[in-house]
Design a protein around this nucleic acid. Structure first.
Length: 465
RNA sequence: GACCCCAUCGUCUAGGGGUUAGGACACUGGCCUUUCACGCCGGCAACGCGGGUUCAAAUCCCGCUGGGGUCGCCA
């Protein structure tokens, strides 16, 4: 069997973390099995679907590197086909018109609730003749669902889950305005698209019982189902905007790398022994539904951040420079020339092992390209107090004479100087660090000197004298 | 409320009748060290509770508790 999966978001908001993971799992499953991964926009709710949301979903998917096969399918464009299927069911006596008003249904549910029963449509128009229809009321179309026995889902994650059919009700297929509902559209589209595996959040599990009834009514085979547990916020409650239910692009803007995000999302709810750092290539090779756990997991920003640090350290220096240049240019309102870029590139190995996000990386790299004279922070100022300045002035004399401007040579020079003066190396190094970086924290300072070059280094030292 | 699902360190998880219950993040002690990191070596820390079944239960069964999901002319 050819594996075909799909990610089917409704365009009512950005691509949030839960959706991103669902997309990732579908993508991995398809890639692992050499199948197809399709993208379908579930825009049947015309009122809430927006163009911006569609764009945000595309952007998010692209950023995460989840490439889909074939053209995107917009569900609403199949509305006619969906309506036809509903009509077919009516003709076959498997669906019917219901003229119940909203108020009527509200009342019905209220009463059921008060009686401690499951709230469900009671089938009041199931067997009534159309001649009884009230005038001027546009009816909805409901499925005449099986009332006896039970419906079972054989779920690849949840196992067999059963529910008595009398818990289910006659769901709406076509709204009063004739447009199809999600329940109808999803079933027809999944069938028409030959979806072999439906992998989605387990908030859809109870919908699936109804959908299975619909598959049966239409005489179609059901796809395989895999309902994956939801992601919760750090406090265990449903992920909300307050927690981290942000769009994928928000994480990009916070300085996260898509590969780190992918690794994190993968590990959230799926495991492969003790493996933590899993490349995408490896993930495709290893991914299987049996590795998905059944319990919900909490979104942990700290772990994502740690993982991001790992991926930053593994990233190519050129790529990182490309990422931070525009950020620094914007913040410092400068234009970074080739010389500046080359400083960043030379310093990158040391820079990248100190950053956990691209934002941090950019900030820690600013001093390399900042305009002279550098702004000194409080701690730098402290390092350049009387004692520090005195040390700096003395050592500067030796630097002036240095002709071999290399990290190792410079370090040896400083060590000898410290030894002669009977002070610790830090006494020599820290004031230089302050002068060159404007801070008390930087990459190894002798490396910074080499990267900056003699002229720039001496210039910055003179600036603080 | 009804129906359904879940339950191992604070978090993500491995294990799935006999383990000193393993790893990772976080926290923490130390080493390295010119700062900050990285790295390395250690530490803290878990099978929700109660009943069974069994020679033996974190693991299987039941109940409880706790958490979650669904119950729309939303998806």
């Amino acid at each position: 069997m050819t594996v075909i999966t799909r990610f089917a978001p409704s365009p009512t908001g950005f691509l949030h973390i839960g959706g991103a993971r669902t997309a990732l799992f579908n993508w991995l499953f398809a890639r692992h099995n050499g199948g197809k991964f399709l993208l379908r926009i579930e825009d049947t709710d015309r009122k809430r679907s927006t163009e911006e949301a569609i764009e945000a979903i595309f952007e998010g998917m692209k950023w995460l590197g989840l490439n889909w096969d074939d053209d995107v399918i917009f569900q609403f464009s199949n509305a006619e086909r969906h309506a036809q299927m509903a009509k077919k069911l009516i003709d076959e006596g498997k669906a019917y018109y219901c003229y119940a008003s909203k108020e009527e249904l509200d009342e019905m549910r209220k009463k059921q609730r008060a009686d401690g029963k499951t709230t469900r449509y009671d089938g009041r128009w199931r067997d009534r003749d159309a001649s009884e229809a009230p005038e001027g009321v546009a009816p909805v179309v409901r499925l005449k669902a099986e009332q006896d026995g039970e419906t079972t889902i054989k779920d690849m994650v949840q196992g067999e889950v059963c529910v008595a059919n009398n818990q289910l009700d006659d769901m709406i297929l076509l709204r009063a305005d004739g447009t199809p509902t999600y329940m109808l559209s999803v079933v027809v589209d999944d069938h028409d698209m030959n979806i072999s595996h439906v992998i989605r959040g387990d908030d859809h599990l109870t919908n699936t019982f109804r959908q299975i009834q619909l598959y049966k009514a239409l005489g179609w085979d059901t796809p395989e189902f895999a309902h994956i547990p939801l992601i919760h916020g750090a406090d265990g409650a449903k992920l909300s905007k307050r927690h981290g239910a942000l769009g994928a692009e928000a994480y990009r803007d916070m300085g996260f790398l898509p590969e780190a995000m992918r690794n994190y999302l993968l590990k959230l709810g799926w495991g492969h022994g003790d493996d933590e750092i899993i490349s995408t290539k490896q993930a495709i090779e290893w991914f299987d539904v049996s590795g998905i756990g059944k319990s919900a997991s909490r979104f942990d920003m700290t772990k994502l951040t740690n993982l991001n640090g790992v991926y930053i350290r593994e990233s190519d220096n050129d790529k990182l420079v490309e990422l931070i240049v525009p950020m620094i240019e914007k913040k410092l309102e400068i234009s970074i020339d080739e010389n500046g870029k080359s400083h960043l590139l030379k310093g990158m190995n040391a820079l990248k092992e100190r950053a956990k996000t691209i934002i941090e990386l950019a900030e820690s790299a600013e001093f390399y390209v900042a305009k002279r004279p550098l702004e000194m922070n409080a701690k730098a100022l402290k390092l350049l107090n009387e004692n520090g300045m005195e040390r700096l002035v003395k050592f500067k004399a030796e630097l002036d004479n240095c002709t071999d401007w290399k990290q190792e040579t410079l370090e040896n020079l400083a060590r000898e100087h410290a030894e002669k003066a009977e002070v610790k190396l830090g006494k020599v190094a820290q004031p230089i660090r302050a002068a060159l970086s404007g801070s008390n924290v930087s990459p190894p300072i002798f490396q910074v000197m080499e990267v900056l070059g003699k002229e720039e280094t001496m210039g910055r030292i003179i600036d603080v004298m």
